[in-house]
Design a protein around this nucleic acid. Structure first.
Lengths: 345, 345
DNA sequence: TGTTAGCACTCAACTTTATGGAGTGCTAAC
DNA sequence: GTTAGCACTCCATAAAGTTGAGTGCTAACA
């Protein structure tokens, strides 16, 4: 059996209608809804074929049809009309916050959630092979030292270190020099025991300060700390009956609250080429690498904060999500983020 | 009508039983449950009295009784058995994180939520009249300056400042001196235009750097930024049928996600004396200053991070919450937090 | 050969009607 | 003051009936 043009039109009509109403779509509706001028009986025959081909399904005998994942997929890949979505407020709001990446990303997530009525998530970009750029110790109070570490990508970390014995100005200066000469330009793998030993020797009785600082550096560079994900609008899923039943909603909300599982989504890359082209990716149902999302769809986009440093933005909603709007919104957003990052960094 | 001892015992039995089961409690149950050796008929008479006094109520004719807010209140104030709750894991887990207050508080929230199966929230303490303790500029790269500001209470803020024209080492040193001599020990109200003008004069062509730093300082000190609240276990409320119906759950979860409204709870102080004594406060239903919580109870405690610097910890759950456990858990936690803060700060 | 009208059939969703049981309030007796 | 007994109420659940949207199939038509 072939998927001729008429079948495609009918499939499209079924999907569109179902996206709008959330109710199974019957043959009579299609007969009126499309400009095919066919009777419901004919449509029935065609729908029967489409069902056999696996694009639509009946939730039960004597009900209308709803799209299968395969049906959605065909729709998203071939029949979706581009609909660029304007979000005027975005630029203004984002510009104000652009100096603090965390706030910016949180803001982006919120805007997306409010605009789409779905749940959004934004991952903080990961810097690979991060190197130490700058270390500085300053005496804040007697017995209190402030260590500031700047990592490639201008990530700043700090820690207050309590001293058991006070530090002279000269010693502080010396430690600063030692730290910077030894550590500058190194990444985690390059800071080895031999190096640490040498630094501690130079620091003499203040060797524990060195240890303290290295801890902070390790923490700053290590992946774990960096897998931060911002979400917004998690409660939006309660607006969609197909997701809001106690169990599903509970699992989903828990996933969004804990965030840990979400890293799987963010890190998943089905097609490297797509990422490099900043393409929008659509996951339908089981396609997402996360069991709880089997009844959801997810649309993700990759943004680039600077050469080679990527983060991801995703929107999660019911399968009958307004794909056109979501994809359009994400595309607009990508453009605006690009502008902001180019300007600011 | 008087509240004699027997009535109290019956009320206590009703509350206890309802806390456990969540079902209206009938006279026959009480008759067996207590050691009063009274027939159900007698209990019925007493319960009728208790209802007239407003401590219990029938959800409908021919159902058992459930406690009213007034009933819970009496129970919490007078009949609750202290039950100190051990949370062994707490100390270990918290000790590791004690150097980063945000992580610590987030961790505390999580522990509470996991231990109690309710929703927890922890507010970051507010420092009043915060003063600038230390300011430092360092050159990270050409055209890139790192500003670090330490506020009283060892709050560290930093910002990368992009320069339009490069800065010499001497100039950096000079700016550092200017900033520190002018700003050290001042709070927001004391940094006025006259002062700013003087500093800018001294900075010469780098006056915009001064402006930039003042912005960061303002942000660091300002209240707004500081009203941070950490929550955990929001989805736990879905475990309680009386809260998990679509509407209530949705409103509650939204409140926990947005957090903004929660500041009302955190800031509410019915009794100043209580706060100073680090007493546990219990809000039942409408007693909480937040409409969405009318079907919930909340238990809060005040912790002191250092002399005069308070934060709040709260647990939100259904009215039929295990008050004894929650209060006990919070008390234990308070002791352990006290220890940690005394040791570390 | 593709299209259509007509009709019997199915099934979820909703409404109505029974049935059972937990619990009460009242009364009369101890 | 306490208690047994009984009529009564009302929720919950199940069972039975009703409706309507939608299908598949057949036979007739262009």
């Amino acid at each position: 059996m072939e998927l001729d043009d008429r079948k495609l039109k009918i499939l499209q009509a079924v999907v569109r209608n179902y996206l709008e109403t959330g109710e199974p779509v019957g043959s009579r509706t299609i007969s009126k809804y499309t400009d095919l001028n066919l009777s419901s009986a004919t449509i029935r025959n065609e729908m029967s074929d489409l069902e056999e081909l696996g694009f639509i399904i009946q939730p039960h005998t004597s009900a209308g049809r709803i799209p299968t994942d395969k049906g959605y997929r065909l729709y998203v890949d071939n029949m979706m009309a581009e609909r660029i979505q304007e979000i005027d407020e975005i630029k203004d709001k984002l510009d104000q916050k652009a100096d603090r990446i965390e706030l910016l990303l949180q803001q982006v997530a919120k805007l997306l959630a409010v605009n789409t009525n779905y749940t959004s998530m934004v991952s903080k970009p990961k810097y690979k092979h991060k190197k130490v750029k700058f270390v500085q110790l300053s005496e804040v109070e007697e017995n209190q030292l402030l260590a500031v570490i700047v990592i490639e990508g201008n990530i700043v970390k700090n820690k207050i270190i309590h001293l058991s014995l006070p530090l002279t100005k000269e010693m502080t200066l010396k430690l600063n020099i030692v730290l910077n000469t030894f550590l500058q330009g190194l990444d985690l793998t390059e800071i080895n025991m031999a190096l640490i030993q040498k630094m501690k020797e130079q620091a003499g009785e203040y060797s524990d300060v060195i240890g303290n600082i290295l801890d902070v550096i390790a923490e700053a560079i290590s992946e774990e700390d960096n897998l931060e994900i911002y979400t917004s609008g998690a409660t939006n899923i309660l607006k969609y009956p197909e997701l809001s039943d106690a169990n599903k909603a509970s699992e989903l909300l828990y996933t969004f609250e804990e965030k840990e599982e979400l890293t799987k989504l963010i890190n998943d890359t089905r097609d490297n080429e797509d990422v490099e082209n900043h393409a929008i990716q659509v996951y339908i149902g089981d396609e997402a690498p996360l069991q709880v999302m089997k009844d959801c769809s997810m649309v993700t986009a990759t943004y680039e904060i600077e050469e080679g440093v990527y983060g991801k933005i995703g929107i999660v909603g019911p399968k009958r999500m307004d794909y056109e709007k979501v994809v359009g919104t994400l595309k607009t957003l990508m453009v605006q983020l690009d502008e902001i990052f180019k300007k600011k960094i």
